[in-house]
């Protein structure tokens, strides 16, 4: 099952270049070249920024809404379904939908703002706004996943614990932070880990929304990988970059798990 990964690993050791047709073994040459490449570090840093903001936003928003749904006594099922819809839209088109919302002038947001007499900022063309838009786009697609999983998790928290806390006079927020969150910690690790892994591979939406621009404002590591493989046709180098990404994300996720489970050995 891991064959494709092994094959990619093998390619990463070759100077496999479709443009010049070369295919020689160069050991760690690709890695050495990449680690000395300023573009790698710049995109990596930018990716971390975008991923952490997106996943952070998704988690906070997801938790807030899940808790709201948990406290709501009616209409939960309908809301749940409707909230999940953005996650179902085919990613190929989801980005196009968002483009129609955010694009200057004839985009929905711009159009409405103009209608209200406000001159809108350039959501895709201004570097700062472009980053915000990309984060919002990811959040739009994947907050539903967070909501669904966290909502289900909140429902598993032991009712007797909650009642005990309420008798002790815990308020709504106290209840959430002191009782519920610790109880669903494993679940939180699960969603955060899955989202981190996916967000690092996040490609389609950025590619369609900004193409990595303006300038390099939203160029993430996957866009760089894509450019290497299909623009510059340096497949070996692209695979090496993929392996580096993999290692980086693995370390990040492992660290997160270690922090959460500092004291409980083997709970993961």
């Amino acid at each position: 099952m891991l064959f494709p990964l092994g094959y990619a690993l093998w390619l990463s050791l070759l100077n496999y270049d479709l443009g010049s047709g070369s295919q020689e073994f160069i050991g760690l040459g690709n890695y050495r070249e990449l680690l000395n490449d300023a573009r790698l570090w710049a995109t990596l840093l930018r990716t971390v920024g975008i991923v952490l903001s997106a996943v952070g936003l998704e988690f906070c928003l997801g938790l807030l809404i899940a808790y709201g749904l948990y406290r709501l006594t009616f209409g939960v099922r309908a809301l749940n379904l409707l909230l999940f819809l953005p996650n179902i839209v085919t990613p190929v088109v989801a980005a196009l939908f968002l483009r129609w919302i955010f694009i200057g002038r004839w985009g929905l947001v711009s159009g409405l703002l103009i209608g209200w007499g406000i001159f809108p900022p350039d959501f895709l063309g201004d570097p700062a706004w472009a980053r915000v838009t990309v984060v919002l786009a990811d959040a739009w697609q994947f907050t539903p996943f967070m909501i669904l999983v966290l909502y289900a998790g909140l429902n598993t928290v032991d009712q007797s614990q909650i009642e005990a806390a309420q008798i002790d006079g815990a308020g709504v927020w106290m209840l959430l932070f002191r009782i519920m969150l610790p109880a669903i910690r494993p679940l939180i690790v699960f969603v955060l880990a899955i989202r981190l892994m996916d967000a690092f591979r996040f490609f389609d939406t950025i590619y369609v929304l900004t193409g990595g621009g303006p300038g390099t404002a939203t160029e993430t590591i996957t866009l760089y990988t894509y450019a290497l493989a299909f623009r510059l046709l340096q497949v070996g180098k692209a695979c090496a970059l993929g392996v580096l990404t993999l290692l980086f994300v693995a370390v990040l996720v492992a660290t997160m798990i270690r922090i959460v489970y500092r004291r409980e050995k083997g709970a993961f």
């Binding site: 200057g104 002038r105 350039d122 900004t210």
Partner: peptide, 9 residues
């Protein structure tokens, strides 16, 4: 400077 909004994308 005189181009439409979002010209970079």
């Amino acid at each position: 400077k005189y181009a439409q909004q979002g010209f970079t994308a």
